[in-house]
Design a protein around this nucleic acid. Structure first.
Lengths: 224, 224
DNA sequence: CCCGAACCTGAAAAAAGCCTGAAGCTTGTG
DNA sequence: CACAAGCTTCAGGCTTTTTTCAGGTTCGGG
């Protein structure tokens, strides 16, 4: 899971980064509103922590813009402002939770868990599609009795494909979510991993396959 | 949208009910934990507002039980307890938002809006005309049980035809929208793709057809 | 009824996109 | 330090999409 922290107070940003890392997030930090919005728009994140008062662009407008561009990641708005009016404004701009400073680490983490629970189906620790099962805690991909261990990147890709049901996932999405939008990985990297995954699916004798939709991306397909 | 309010303070319960009604919710009220849980388990609600201190059964265990029984409705936990520990416990038992009393009406309503916003989100959108369906997330064109995959240009063209209902779409429009106005593609390119699409429609045995209007363009027609 | 413009469509060439084995890196571990 | 596992890069070959072309068909006006 990737998180974006948009916060101009660098000390706080680092602290947040450490907190979230301890909750197994990979974090990117933006120190001003503009870069925060840019990063957020990449669609690479599963969580966005947003301060309100920021240089260049405030949190409200960032949230609004992200939602307008169909970025669905949960937004946790984090600020010193306790005015009811600000809370309302924050939530109505598209934030999912409004937390006021100061807050304790345990509280922040509980919010994060609550926010990401639905998205990543953290409630279950197994995802399934057709005849394959992805164990989220051991990274095993199983089918019937057989199973194989997936590497970290293989796992992320399979995770994304499976949680999207049968819908198409573009290479760009995969690059952003798996490699991060800062990375300079190219389409071919995705192709290589898709190839690895296909090899494993075929080893498992799974009926589920990864279908290529030229110029669109990939998707899972059940049945033979 | 239906809301369940689980709150033993009858005055507060009524106030909450009025607030939510003003936000166009139909509200039911339970005054103790047991009946709250029973009602919640019916699965009839799109929102559950839960107090923590309740007769017979506390809010934490209600939330936990609801989640265990796969009730997915957003839970707004509402309480006078401000201890961080309680917040963590509340959120971790399955609540989606923790609001401490006293709170203002506007704040509550903003939370509710934030919590219910995601409900209406459609995962798979589909465009249909006559007996054919164009799945926008998988790029399949379907009719009855059968379906075929469309290539990118085929998809764009079909998309345009279908979203125009039965209206005429000129070749020029198609060239501009599908090839881009910079392109030097010619009318014949469109014709070739229309031909591809017709072949697929006929394979699908669809009643919908692509009609040619000489000198004007193309349009979809239902009927046999 | 005839003619030309508009349209259809099969085939094949051209281009774009994708697959995958192999080799070279990097990183973490015993 | 050496090894293994995972990651990246690369290049050649393969597949699908897109374009092009040419011969045929249909339509409407004169």
């Amino acid at each position: 899971m990737r998180a974006l922290i948009v916060e101009d107070d660098k000390a706080l940003a680092r602290t947040l980064g450490e907190m979230l890392s301890s909750a197994r997030f990979e974090c990117d930090i933006s120190n001003d509103g503009e870069s925060g919005l840019d990063n957020g728009l990449s669609g690479a994140y599963d969580l966005i922590v947003l301060d309100i008062m920021l240089p260049k662009k405030d949190g409200f407008s960032i949230a609004r813009e992200l939602r307008k561009q169909k970025i669905a990641a949960p937004i946790l708005m984090l600020t010193a402002r306790t005015e009811t009016n600000d809370k309302v404004r924050g939530l109505d701009s598209g934030a999912d939770y409004y937390l006021t400073k100061p807050f304790e680490m345990s509280e922040l983490l509980a919010c994060v868990r609550a926010l990401t629970r639905r998205q990543g189906e953290v409630i279950m620790d197994e995802l399934s599609f057709g005849d394959i099962r992805l164990n989220l805690s051991t990274c095993d991909l199983g089918c019937g009795e057989k199973k194989v261990r997936l590497g970290k990147k293989e796992f992320s890709i399979m995770h994304i494909l499976m949680s999207n049901g049968g819908a198409i996932v573009s290479k760009e999405t995969l690059l952003n979510k798996v490699w991060g939008c800062e990375s300079d990985a190219e389409d071919n990297n995705v192709e290589v991993y898709i190839s690895f995954l296909r090899k494993k699916l075929s080893f498992l004798k799974a009926t589920v396959q990864i279908a290529t939709l030229r110029k669109f991306g990939y998707r899972l397909e059940a049945q033979a």
